[in-house]
Write a protein that binds this DNA or RNA. Structure first.
Lengths: 227, 227
DNA sequence: CGGCGCCTTGAACCAAGTCAAGCTCTGTGG
DNA sequence: CCACAGAGCTTGACTTGGTTCAAGGCGCCG
C-alpha cells in the first residue's frame, strides 16, 4: 500500500456506522474513529500490504474478508489466517510485515497508523492493554493454526469448518474464500480439500448445497473426527 | 505448579547474576528481580505449568531449556516451542494456559506473577510495551512454526537446526532435547528425523559427532534445502 | 448458447508413517 | 575394571494418506 493512500478519504458515509456495529462499544481503538484511523475500500484480490514493507499501520476489518500469506521458496503459498469483520490484522513484532495481506472479497478496512496509536496511548493507557490482548489473541490463533497442520486431512477440514461457523453469523456457513484459499490455509491440495468435503457430506456431518455454502448437520461429529 | 512454590526461595546465590547475564540490561522486567519475581529450579522432565491451569505467572528461562506442548485427542504430543536462556514463556491471551510447560533439562526459571507486573506497569509504563513486544515476538515464532509444518521433512529438520544454531551459543549445536522432542516439534516421527539427519550428514551439510552434538558444515546449503 | 473459472472425481505415484530389528551409548553393580 | 541392563537412536522393509496428473462437470456471465 502506498503512503499516499492516507491522504484519501472515502465518500462512503456508512463506514463509521459500520465500524461501530462491527466492533462494539468496548474497543478504545475506535472510540474516536476520525481521530485514529480512516476507512478504506479494497477490491477482491487487492493487496493491502506486502511482506517486508514497513509496518506503519494496523488494520481492522469492517466488512468483507482478508487473508494473510507467505510465498515459500518453491512458489507455494501458505495462508496464515483469514480475518473477518471485527478482526484486527497487521500486528507485528518487527518494523516490517512478516506476511502479505489481500482482500478475499471486496472489503472495507479501517487503517490506523501506529504512530497515532502510540500518541493516543499516552493519553489513555488502556489502549496499550487492548493492543496487548489483541496480540495475545492473535498468538493463540497462530498456535491453533500450527496444531491444525499436524492433523489428518479430515480433521483439518472439520476444524476449519467449525472455526468458520463460530466466526461467521448464521448457522449455514457462507465461505468468502475459494477452495484454493482453504487448501493453502490447511496445508493441503485443492483436490484433497474437495474430496474431504465430499466425504464429510457422505458421512452426513455436513451438507453442501453449493460450493461456497455449507451446512453443519452434525457439529459434534465434526469435533469428534480427531484423527 | 502449586501456589506453595512461591514461598520457596533457592539457596543458589548465583541466580541473580545468572539472570542479569542471561537477559542483558535493556529488560525492565528484571530491573529489580527481588521485587518482581523469584528464581526456581526445575528438574529435567518436571512440569512447570499444565494446560488449562490459571495463568497467574509468566516465566523467564535463566538456565536450561523448556518445552511447551499440547496433547492431541489421539494421544500424540505436539510441541509448540523450545525456550532457552533469556526467553520468556507463559504469555497468554486468556486467563488459562493453552499449553503445558516442562523442563527439557534441569533449569532455573524466573517466575513472575502477573499481578506484580500489572502493579509495576502502573509505575513504569515501559513495562507494558516490553510485554507487548515479547508477545509480538512470540507471535512471530508461532507463525514461523506454522510455516515449518507445511514443508518437507528435509526442510523442517534443516530449519530446526538453523534456528537452534542461531539461538544457542557456539558453532557446534549442543541440543538439549532428545529426538522425540524434535519429532514432536516438527510434526514428524522420530524415525523420519533420524533418517533425515543421517541424510543431511551424507550430503555434507552437517556432521554428527554424537547424537546430541551437531556441527553445521554448510549452513547455506541447509538454508537452500527448501523443498 | 458458448466460454471460462472453479470445483469434483479418478488413477497412479511417492514421501513419510509403521512395524520390527539391531546398534550405541551411559550408568550401575559385581 | 568389566558385564550388563536400559534408554535412546538408527536402519531396513513394507504400508498408506495425500499429492500429482489428467479428465470432466457445474454454474455464471456475456
Amino acid at each position: 500500500m502506498q503512503p499516499v493512500a492516507f491522504h484519501q478519504t472515502i465518500a462512503d458515509g456508512s463506514s463509521v456506522a459500520e465500524a461501530v456495529k462491527a466492533t462494539g462499544l468496548r474497543d478504545p481503538l475506535l472510540d474516536s474513529p476520525a481521530l485514529l484511523g480512516v476507512t478504506m475500500p479494497f477490491e477482491k484480490g487487492e493487496e493491502i500490504y506486502g511482506e517486508s514493507e514497513k509496518a506503519e499501520c494496523i488494520y481492522k476489518v469492517l466488512a468483507g474478508a482478508v487473508r494473510t500469506y507467505n510465498i515459500l521458496q518453491d512458489g507455494r503459498r501458505q495462508i496464515g489466517g483469514f480475518y473477518l469483520p471485527g478482526d484486527l490484522f497487521g500486528l507485528e513484532a518487527d518494523e516490517r510485515y512478516s506476511m502479505s495481506a489481500e482482500a478475499v472479497v471486496n472489503a472495507n478496512i479501517l487503517v490506523i497508523r501506529r504512530k497515532a496509536i502510540a500518541t493516543a496511548s499516552q493519553r489513555d493507557p488502556r489502549i496499550m492493554g487492548m493492543l496487548l490482548s489483541s496480540t495475545a489473541r492473535e498468538l493463540n490463533r497462530a498456535r491453533n493454526h500450527a496444531l491444525l497442520l499436524v492433523k489428518t486431512a479430515q480433521e483439518r477440514v472439520a476444524s476449519f469448518l467449525l472455526e468458520m461457523a463460530s466466526r461467521l453469523p448464521g448457522d449455514t456457513v457462507e465461505l468468502p474464500m475459494c477452495r484454493q484459499d482453504i487448501a493453502d490455509y490447511l496445508g493441503l491440495t485443492i483436490e484433497t480439500v474437495s474430496r474431504t468435503l465430499t466425504q464429510l457430506g457422505n458421512l452426513r456431518a455436513i451438507e453442501i448445497p453449493s460450493s461456497r455454502r455449507i451446512i453443519l448437520r452434525n457439529p459434534k461429529a465434526l469435533a469428534q473426527l480427531n484423527s
